[in-house]
Design a protein around this nucleic acid. Structure first.
Length: 274
DNA sequence: ATCACGACCTGGAGGC
DNA sequence: TGCCTCCAGGTCGTGA
C-alpha cells in the first residue's frame, strides 16, 4: 500500500522519535528487496546516535541522526514501521528493531520487498534507489509544463508514465488509477499524446489525490498502518481503485478493471477518453 | 534506448 | 477442515 501519502503519514507519525537516542539496533538477518540483507555492522554502529530529522523522498524514508549516517527505509508492499513501547508484543516478520530504551522503532515486512540501508548524509542521492527519483510528488509538485516535457516522445501508456518514479516520485498503483480518473484520461493512452492542457490537468489531479489521501491518513487496503498502528480511512474515498462494476462517481458508467504491465488498473470507459 | 513482463515473497480470500 | 488458485500498495533484471 505504501505510496507517497502512506509513507508521508508514517513519516509524520514517526516524528515523536526525533530527539530519541538509540541504545541498540537489531536485525533479523533475512534478505529483503533483491535478497539484500540490512547492513548489520552499520546498523549496530548507530548505538549512541540521536534521531535528528525524519525526511522523505517519494516512497523512501530518510531517518537522519547526529552522526554522518542516515537510515534509509522503504516499505515495499507490506512494510510497517511502528513506534511502540518496549513491552509491545513482537510481530512475526519483524526485521529490524531500533531500541530507544523505553520505546522501540520496529520494521515489520511479511513479503520482504522493503529495503533497509545506511547512507552517508549528503550522499543520499547517490543511493541507487534514490538516484533515479524525480521530484517528490508532495514537496516539489509537478507542473503541467514539467509533465508535458517529460512525456514528449514517450510511447509508454499514461499509467506507466505516472507510475514512473523518475517522473514523479511517490505515485503508486492506487493513486495512478485515481489521478487518471480525476484527470479524465484513459490509462492506455500513450504519454506522448498529452497536450500541455491535459498535462496541467493531470498535474493538478495527482496533487489533489495525494492531498486528499493525506487528510484521510492514507489508504489501508490490507496492511497499511501509521507508526502508531492506526489504519487510514482513504479506502472509503477512492473513486475507482478496487471498484470494478460499481458506478463511476461522475457519470454512473460501470467501472472497469484491466491489467496494464501486470498491474490492476481501474477506469471509467466513458468519461476517461482515449 | 524503450517498453512490457516475470520474478522476488508471504498471506488472505474464495472456490470446491 | 484442507487444498488449490488467484490476488496484493513496489522495484528490478531480462529480453524483445
Amino acid at each position: 500500500m505504501p505510496e507517497l501519502p502512506e509513507v508521508e503519514t508514517v513519516r509524520r507519525t514517526l516524528e515523536p522519535a526525533i530527539g530519541a537516542t538509540i541504545v541498540a539496533v537489531w536485525d533479523s538477518g533475512k534478505g529483503l528487496h533483491m535478497a539484500r540483507k540490512p547492513p548489520r555492522k552499520k546498523l549496530r554502529a548507530l548505538a549512541g546516535a540521536t534521531i535528528t530529522r525524519i525526511h522523505r523522498h517519494g516512497k523512501y524514508l530518510l531517518i537522519e541522526t547526529d552522526t554522518a549516517q542516515t537510515l534509509l527505509v522503504h516499505l515495499g508492499m507490506t512494510g510497517r514501521t511502528l513506534l511502540v513501547a518496549k513491552n509491545h508484543p513482537v510481530a512475526k516478520h519483524t526485521h529490524m528493531v531500533i531500541d530507544f530504551g523505553e520505546r522501540e522503532l520496529r520494521f515489520i515486512d511479511p513479503r520482504r520487498f522493503g529495503q533497509i540501508d545506511i547512507v552517508e548524509r549528503g550522499k543520499e542521492s547517490e543511493h541507487e534507489g534514490l538516484a533515479v527519483l524525480g521530484p517528490d510528488g508532495l514537496f516539489e509538485p509537478a507542473t503541467g509544463a514539467y509533465l508535458f516535457g517529460k512525456s514528449r516522445k514517450k510511447n509508454a501508456t499514461l499509467k506507466a508514465f505516472v507510475l514512473d518514479q523518475s517522473v514523479i516520485a511517490g505515485v503508486g498503483n492506487i493513486y495512478a488509477s485515481e489521478a487518471l480518473w480525476r484527470a479524465k484520461l484513459r490509462p492506455t493512452t500513450r504519454a506522448k499524446k498529452l497536450t500541455l492542457a491535459k498535462a496541467t490537468i493531470l498535474a493538478a489531479a495527482i496533487h489533489e489525490v495525494f492531498d486528499r489521501a493525506l487528510t484521510k491518513g492514507g489508504t489501508s487496503l490490507r496492511d497499511f498502518v501509521n507508526a502508531y498502528g492506526v489504519e487510514g480511512s482513504n479506502v472509503d474515498y477512492l473513486w475507482v481503485y478496487g471498484r470494478t462494476g460499481e458506478p463511476c462517481p461522475r457519470d454512473q458508467t460501470k467501472i472497469r478493471r484491466s491489467v496494464l504491465q501486470g498491474r490492476a488498473t481501474f477506469y471509467c470507459p466513458t468519461c476517461q477518453t482515449p
